[in-house]
Structure formats: C-alpha cells, structure tokens
Design a protein around this nucleic acid. Structure first.
Length: 274
DNA sequence: CCAGTATCCTGCAGGC
DNA sequence: TGCCTGCAGGATACTG
C-alpha cells in the first residue's frame, strides 16, 4: 500500500497526535510473524515511560524517536496501519501491537498481510540496520533531478525497475512510478541507458511532482490505507493511468495497456509513452 | 551484472 | 450460494 506520500501523511498525523505523548504500557503484542519478528520483551522494557518526539520518515520507513536513546522503526508493507485511536475504538483482528498513551489514547499497529513490521532500534543500530543502510536518496531532495539522471543513465535495466529500486531512490512504489512515467511520456520498458539525460531529468521532476501532489491530498487510498488519525487519502481520483488499463489515455484517447515489469503490474499508453 | 520468478500473507472481485 | 483463480500499495531470496 503505502509509498512515500502515504508514509509522509502518517508521519504528519503522528506529529500532531503522538508527539509529546508518553507511552504508559504495552497493552498487547501479537505472536504472529511479521516481516521482521516483533520483540515483545524488548518493547515492554524500552517503551513504557518514554515520550514520543516528532517522527521522521526515510523512504517508506517511519522512525519514532523517543526522549531517550532508541527508536521504533516501522514499515507498513502493503496493508499496514499505524494509528492513534481512542482506547475504546474497535480493534481489528490483524492488530499486532497496542501501546497505551498518557492521554488515554492508544498507538496501534495493524497489518492484514503482515508484510510490514515494527522493530526497536537501539542507539547506534540505525546506521547499520539492513532495512535502512542501502536506501538511495530522498526523492523530494531538490538536488535529485541534477544528480540521479547520470546514475540511471548507466543502467541497462528497464526504467520502471529503476524507479522501484529502493537503492536508487527511496520511497517510490508501483502507483507513483506508473504515474510519473506517464507524465514524463516515457515507456516503462525503456532501459536507463537508452534515455537521454534530459528525458531522465524530466522523469525525476515528474516523480517529484506526483509525490508532492499526492502528499498534499493525504496519499492514495485504494482499499486499506488510512492515516494515523484513520482518515483516507484523496489522491486516488487524481490517478491518470494506475488501475485504468483498457480505459482511454487522458492525454490522447488511445487505450491504455497493461503489462508486467519487475513482477509488478504496469499501465501505460502506447502512443504517448516512447 | 541482469531478468525473471517465487515467497511471505490475507482478502476481495470476477467467472462459472 | 460456493468454489476457484488471479490480483493487490513491498521487499527479498532464489534461479538461470
């Protein structure tokens, strides 16, 4: 589910609803296996009594810092939700972590498909963590459009695969890669080394624009995504091609096609995108 | 180095 | 109504 705009939306909501709150106690930790194993004993040891600071985001990861050394690293996978809710709010059966906060609310992590995780990072572990250490640059960095095209140009991989590769840039997923390629009029199968630096630069700018617009609308809610305050995002009705194969291209009217690249469904216009 | 596939999971839509 | 198949916002470990 969540790509950079969704994770940033959650981060901003947490900044409003979690920052400054103190964790009282761990209410529950599920025993089901997530992508990385939960650490019930360690969480129970570290979390209670700590105050949450303003959360950080790195690519699709959230880092919940506290007022003592150590942070919670969270990845939402496809269906993960990190919410601050009333203690009395209904808890779905895919809830894996619940912590009580000092204002009577609860911080909850739920994840239907369990591709996400919550992992405690001890001081100093952040730099070496396998999830974080290989991440590429942040897509919204203004310098990126000058720097990344040269790297993309050196690769013989389909450009769609490059956008999805978190080592190239951190945070783009299938929705926004698909949308950015359509905006930049670039065929997803085109190899990096077959594109001019100018076209690659336009692609990065298209990535930045689509991510920024999606953040402003609170992300894309197809089915599962909600922000930390359980509200949905509104970018879904701005999607031009994602999920629209067989429909006419919004730019030229030619029917949108679907194919699979890097194992991911891709929608593109055979006339506009070259 | 690269491409393609399978894998981890659950839920839902569509076809029959 | 039910059963089956394919597909879904991600990341990684294989194979060839």
């Amino acid at each position: 589910m969540p790509e950079l705009p969704e994770v940033e939306t959650v981060r901003r909501a947490l900044a409003l609803h979690l920052s400054g709150r103190r964790a009282d106690s761990l209410v529950m930790v599920s025993r089901l296996k997530l992508r990385r194993a939960l650490q019930p004993a360690l969480l129970a040891e570290r979390l209670p009594g700590r105050e949450f600071l303003e959360p950080r985001r790195r690519g699709k990861y959230l880092l919940l810092d506290t007022d003592a050394p150590g942070s919670l690293l969270v990845h939402l996978g496809m269906t993960g939700r990190l919410t601050v809710t009333a203690r009395t709010a209904a808890r779905d059966r895919h809830t894996h972590l619940v912590a009580a906060l000092d204002n009577g609310c609860q911080l909850r992590f739920s994840d239907t498909r369990r591709f996400g995780f919550v992992h405690w990072l001890e001081p100093g572990e952040e730099e070496r963590d396998p999830s974080l250490s290989l991440l590429g640059p942040e897509p919204l960095d203004p310098a990126l459009a000058k720097q990344l095209p040269r790297l993309l140009k050196s690769r013989s991989v389909p450009v769609k695969s490059l956008l999805l590769d978190q080592r190239m840039l951190a945070g783009v997923g299938n929705i926004y890669a698909t949308e950015a390629l359509w905006r930049a009029r670039i065929r997803p199968t085109r190899r990096g080394d077959q594109l001019s630096l100018q076209r690659l630069e336009r692609l990065i700018i298209a990535v930045q624009e689509v991510l920024q617009e999606a953040i402003e609308l609170g992300g894309t809610t197809i089915r599962d995504f909600v922000s930390a305050d359980t509200s949905a995002g509104y970018f879904a009705n701005r999607l031009q091609v994602y999920g629209r194969d067989g429909e006419p291209c919004p730019a030229c009217g030619s029917f949108l096609r679907r194919s699979v690249i890097a194992g991911r469904s891709t929608v593109w216009c055979g006339r506009c995108q070259r």
